[in-house]
Design a protein around this nucleic acid. Structure first.
Lengths: 149, 149
DNA sequence: TTAAATAGGACTAGAATAGTCCTCAATTAA
DNA sequence: TTAATTGAGGACTATTCTAGTCCTATTTAA
């Protein structure tokens, strides 16, 4: 289904809540109660986001989490790769180790192009865009195929 | 990892083999031996592609599978959705049933936009593009964020 | 010193995926 | 008419992945 994991979905909810909140530092428990996501799950997600430098943490009493950058500077791609690892549609795009398909491997170059296109698409959408009121343009069309010709 | 399933990966290998082959009708076993993918797995994939009208099948002796359209008319999006169902990054994009997140649901409109962008990107790449020798352009950049402003 | 927090991992249950196999239906050719 | 070939459809299993929880150590404020 080419879909994101539930945890990534939660992450976007958590991050957009944090982006809208004025408070600088929020504890995991506060975030949990405000978003309705279970506290252990929230903690797990926050830790991953810290490791990916999307959030900054402060330990100890009065500690908590804060955005590492402004919402405009946090891309959806960064969030996804924080939770799910590198954005790549096919195994081959990550490493060429397991690619022993004799007759199909000349496809890979073009798959890489698709991967990159999607990555760039996700890179260009920021947390600020997500928190913005929904925009529903008439038509959204990005002709990737034209890049090949 | 935002990645495609192994079966979808196989499907692209199978389809590009079929696109390059001159023979009109190929049996599942022939495809299996030519691609190196196990026969039962090949059959499973071929059946899914028939159901999605990407391939046409002929039963009985001398039967087999053939492309339903020219490679130029078969999009990567069609292949992906044949194997994995509708292309949608979040659960919410498919149905709004399970969306009981109180504070985060105004994100959805924008997620939908991202979904559509990626869908269009995959729609615009065809089987013909995949079989073509790999093109490696200097830069591929599709500024999705500009659509919001 | 104590309480409040995060860090880092282990662990479990459930779901999804990959892969195989079996039976039935359709077609061709002898 | 019969036998051989080939796809259709679905059941089934094993493995992997995901979601979610929990425990212990570390850090910091009061």
């Amino acid at each position: 289904m080419l879909r994101l994991s539930k945890l990534t979905d939660y992450a976007t909810v958590i991050l957009s809540f944090m982006a809208k909140d004025k408070t600088q530092v929020l504890a995991a428990m506060e975030i949990a109660s405000m978003t309705g996501i279970a506290q252990p799950t929230v903690s797990k997600i926050l830790k991953l986001l810290v490791n990916a430098n999307v959030l900054i943490s402060t330990r100890g009493a009065k500690g908590g989490y804060a955005l590492a950058r402004t919402p405009e500077e946090i891309s959806v791609a960064a969030v996804i790769s924080a939770l799910e690892g590198p954005i790549a549609l096919t195994e081959c795009s990550i490493s060429h180790q397991g690619c022993e398909q004799a007759s199909g491997c000349d496809i890979r170059g073009n798959w890489g192009l698709i991967n990159q296109t999607i990555h760039n698409a996700l890179e260009s959408v920021t947390l600020a865009d997500l928190t913005r009121p929904a925009a529903v343009p008439e038509e959204v069309f990005v002709p990737v195929a034209s890049l090949y010709r």
